[in-house]
Design a protein around this nucleic acid. Structure first.
Length: 920
RNA sequence: GGGCCUGUGGCGGAAUUGGCAGACGCAGGGGACUUAAAAUCCCCCGAGGAUAAUACCUCAUGAGGGUUCGAGUCCCUCCGGGCCCACCA
């Protein structure tokens, strides 16, 4: 070996050795375990910080480098807050029920629990190797019976509640029953006192927050499951291309629509990304308008919802959704000029197409005339009623008043079917398009009512007033949000804690009998059938039981009654709807959460929630809904679960594209003189940014990066790529930058030849280094709460460069510096912290402070501009008055020379920044 | 079709929120050390012009206009890129 090679350099071996050593020390000493109120030594007077990551779905493939981006981000601020004296709750767990595990089970015959547990172990191992400060003692998975027991319990809470419109709150179902019995609450559209017992039961059931409802679903017989709309393309399943049927199905729903108002209004107080707030608001989709009844002969009036009642005079036809109840009446007694065969064919076809497919890209609007006419209440004219699939049964009343002059869809339809178009809104500016904005009402007069000349806003109000006076219509607020379909025919999910008697009445299972444990199956292959059949239907021994066996309260149902369990399971979202609460006391057996712990950690919700923007709507909306429900019922102490939300950016990767835009796998491309060449063909290819994917061969495994550089380098690199919220491409070439930085940090402390600490660390301090250190402390302290990690790291690099070239650094300064570094690169920081003589863990060391007096220089060099262009610079004392600064600027030789032939109009002095002389 | 975000060197990105554009890192070039290489350290590194050289000048933050003493940052128009929603009446 050559003598010049440093043998104690910071390299992959050194990094891996010290990282695994400290990780095992931390684990042994339970360094990251945090107590709860009431525990020995737990100080509730300290401020708390609950920092939550969106927990992962543990897939068999393990982590790739994109997963930890958010986790590193949350770990840094958690460690920082802890050093600042906060009690920090920073937990991790597993969202482990779901389809991929079940699909894998179908292929392999291995029980999903087995594969999922293996995947969890892999994920946990990979995360632990990165050195996160998670409190692993709080870890749980949604598939743990001790956890899903409480998921079922919460569902029962919803089942046992209703939404009281008078208080706008969830309330126990007994308050409804009592209110109806005493007459304090009046039943909708019926007389409670005259109802039979079974009618009463039905009425109450229809008001539960978790209720059985009829929904049209996409049923794929071949896959043996229902599919989401997104999974159906052209009537075929996205996976496999099998036929998908539309089937009405009675299944468990959540009455989330009752909370639509609050889910919308409460977005206001949240510190969330603007775009996500917007997406939630749009998803909820509140709109204001009117319900209007259109009369027709021999049938009930048709009720439509419109946001533009002011266009009533322009209504030249009515369109019904193919599922509209009136359509069935047409089949029973077809009107004279109705082609009932064509109608039947059209309706049958439309019913079997999912909503998604109905919005075909083609502008062509299909439809069939019903043979019926309705009366336009404003004009008294007879207008035709059409059936068309561009009207959806699920929104409004499944019927629309069509205004072809001012709605693009109605316009297209009228053009295609030759229907009259009447302009009733005059735009302010001429436009060629179908005008749907606000303007002035025209052609809107009859002997009934006139709104001609009114602006859209006033026209709406006047027409609504008229409609209400004449009982034709009523003002109405509508939401796009629908009730939440909560049943799945799959195996790998939480069973519902409910049973049915032979009549189909349902009975809840008592709390004492929870959890209803998911039974084992021998075969996960989906059942092929015309009608949806849940997989759990095969667990016959489990399915058929008695009320007593299942745990139904004997006062509701006699224990020996034969009952059938609910065979559907809950969807993948269920477990993630309340996991943030469970982390407060994951081992609590008496309750879903220990009350005092929940109050302490979540009195104002979680303090920071980090996760991907792909959950902007569904997960976050569902979790907010559950939280509000639990809040109303007095089970949790705040109204919103997530105070501050942050979306980390997507980690992308480079991909390579041929001239014809086809992609080339990364391992088939070579770089030659700044050009990228496809190895096989020798053709030049273009480098583009793409998602990491197996097919592009651009997936990077964090284990490989750690083996080559260590976890601290991985952590730093991922945070140094750019702003945490921005997408950035992984570029292996860039990793060495932060790696070299850590090597320089190491060298500040360690003599690479001897492996000993530098003797010079005892020398007198350099004022310049001390000032630089204070500036760095200030910058990092400021950046971390904003999650501006990339600039924090840059400032630490600057400091190390300063300290390196100064070669005067005291142990005390290094001590303060590594404490700054600790949240980012905890292992090397700990190692140096120990080497320079500290006992104990840097994780619990105090955060360094800075003296703002040391941040300002005594003298400042200020640029001097003439007419906004820098023409010179002057050095003045930092505390110089404007007068002195002005004098110095005007006397500067460069400046005075340039000003010779000019008249000074004005001198602008921005203190400590710049001087600008206006002269001409 | 609608909404949101975004556009700065060869690349990833800075810019105290209207005040010296390009911090920091990568890549590249040059030098020191070395027999040599690696490692390390030092210097250069937006484009163009000018000069023996330094000083210096001009242009430049997707394009065009505007507001301002001063614009990457604010306003208007246009053009690219990304994400989300989408026959929701």
């Amino acid at each position: 070996m050559l003598g010049t090679t440093p043998t104690h350099k910071y390299c992959a071996e050194v990094a891996n050795e010290l990282e695994t050593r400290w990780q095992s020390n931390w684990a042994q000493d339970n360094l990251n375990t945090i107590g709860n109120p009431g525990d020995d030594g737990f100080d509730t007077s300290k401020p708390k910080f609950y920092c939550l990551d969106m927990f992962p779905y543990p897939s068999g493939a393990g982590l790739h480098v994109g997963h930890p981006v958010g986790y590193i981000g949350s770990d840094i601020i958690s460690r920082f807050k802890r050093m600042q004296g906060f009690n920090v709750l920073h937990p991790m767990g597993w969202d482990a029920f779901g389809l991929p595990a079940e699909q894998y089970a179908i292929e392999t015959g291995v029980h999903p629990a087995t594969t999922t547990r293996t995947a969890i172990d892999t994920f946990r191992g990979q995360l632990q190797r990165i050195g996160f400060s998670y409190d692993w003692s709080r870890e749980f998975a949604t598939i743990d019976p001790e956890y899903y027991k409480w998921t079922q319990w919460i569902w029962l809470k919803a089942y046992g509640s209703w939404f009281d419109p008078s208080t706008k709150q969830a309330s126990p179902i007994n308050t409804l029953i009592d209110g109806l019995n005493t007459g304090e609450i009046t039943a909708d559209d019926c007389d409670w006192q005259l109802m039979t017992a079974s009618e009463k039961t039905t009425y109450v059931n229809d008001h539960r927050l978790a209720y059985l409802g009829e929904q049209v679903v996409n049923w794929c017989p071949k896959l043996g499951t229902v599919l989401a709309n997104e999974e159906v393309i052209d009537g075929l399943s996205e996976r496999g291309g099998f036929p998908v049927l539309r089937r009405p199905l009675r299944q468990w729903m959540f009455r989330i629509t009752a909370f639509a108002d609050r889910l919308l209004e409460d977005l206001d107080g949240l510190d969330w990304p603007h775009s996500t707030l917007r997406m939630q608001a749009e998803w909820i989709g509140r709109s204001e308008g009117a319900d209007i009844d259109f009369n027709l002969q021999n049938h009930e009036p048709i009720r439509v919802y419109t946001t533009r009642p002011d266009t009533l005079f322009g209504v030249t036809f009515i369109v019904l959704a193919p599922e509209h109840p009136l359509v069935d009446e047409l089949f029973a007694s077809p009107p004279e000029n109705c082609n009932s065969e064509a109608l039947a064919a059209y309706v049958t076809e439309a019913k079997n197409r999912a909503d998604v497919d109905r919005m075909a890209d083609s502008k062509e609007k299909s439809g069939v005339f019903s043979g019926l006419f309705a009366t336009n209440p404003a004009t008294g004219k007879q207008i035709p009623i059409w059936i068309a699939d561009y009207v959806l049964m699920g929104y409004g009343h499944g019927a629309i008043m069509a205004v072809p002059a001012h709605d693009q869809r109605d316009h297209d339809f009228a053009k295609a079917h030759d229907i009259e178009i009447i302009e009733v809104v005059k735009p302010d500016k001429k436009t060629d398009d179908c005008f749907s904005g606000n303007g002035t009402a025209v052609n809107s007069s009859s002997d009934q009512v006139s709104i001609d000349g009114l602006r859209t806003k006033e026209a709406k109000q006047k027409i609504i007033d008229w409609l209400e006076e004449n009982s034709i219509g009523i003002t109405k607020v509508n939401f796009r949000l629908r009730d939440w379909l909560f049943s799945r025919q799959r195996y790998w999910g939480e069973p519902f804690p409910i049973v049915f008697d032979s009549e189909g009445n349902h009975y809840p299972i008592g709390e004492a009998s929870l959890p209803v444990v998911l039974p084992d199956l021998d075969d996960y292959t989906p059942a092929e059938s015309e009608d949806p059949t849940p997989l759990l239907g095969r667990a016959t021994a489990w399915l058929h039981t008695t009320a007593g066996e299942a745990g139904v309260d004997p006062s509701i149902l006699s224990p020996d009654t034969l009952v059938t369990r609910e065979a559907n399971t809950m969807p993948g979202w269920a477990g993630s709807c309340w996991y943030e609460i469970r982390y407060c006391s994951p081992n609590c057996t008496e309750r879903f959460v220990d009350k005092a712990s929940e109050q302490y950690w979540m009195g104002n919700g979680t303090d920071l929630y980090i996760g991907g923007a792909e959950h902007a709507v569904l997960h976050l909306l569902y979790a907010r809904f559950w939280h509000k429900m639990l809040f109303d019922l007095g089970e949790v102490s705040c109204n919103e679960p997530f105070q501050k939300l942050f979306h980390q950016g997507l980690l992308t990767s480079f991909a390579f594209q041929r001239a014809n835009k086809s992609l080339v796998p990364s391992n088939k491309v070579e770089e030659q003189n700044d050009k990228f060449i496809e190895t096989e063909t020798g053709e030049e290819v273009e480098r583009v940014i793409a998602k990491m994917s197996k097919s592009l061969k651009n997936v990077v495994n964090p284990d490989d990066v750690i083996a080559e550089y260590g976890a601290d380098t991985l952590r730093l690199y991922e945070m140094y790529m750019g702003p945490l919220e921005a997408s950035a491409p992984w570029n292996t070439r860039d990793i060495v930058g932060v790696y070299r930085f850590l090597q320089r940090v190491w060298r500040l402390c360690i003599d690479e030849n001897s492996g000993d600490m530098h003797a010079s660390l005892q020398d007198a301090q350099d004022d310049l280094v001390e000032r630089a250190l204070h500036a760095t402390i200030a910058k990092v302290t400021d950046d971390i709460p904003n999650l501006s990690y990339n600039t924090a790291i840059a400032s630490m690099i600057e400091f190390v460069n300063t300290a390196t070239s100064s070669s005067k650094l005291t142990a005390n300064q290094l001590d303060r510096f590594v404490r700054l570094l600790a949240p980012f690169a905890p292992h090397i920081a700990q190692e140096i912290y120990t080497k320079i003589g500290n006992n104990g863990y840097i994780t619990v060391a105090s955060w360094p402070t800075f003296d703002s007096a040391l941040l300002v220089e005594d003298e400042l060099e200020l640029p001097v501009q003439i007419m906004g262009k820098v023409r010179g610079r002057v050095t003045v004392p930092a505390d110089a008055s404007d007068e002195i600064v002005k004098k110095a600027a005007l006397e500067d030789s460069n400046i005075s020379a340039l000003l010779e032939n000019l008249t000074i109009r004005k001198v602008i002095i921005v203190p400590n920044k710049i001087i600008n002389i206006v002269a001409n």
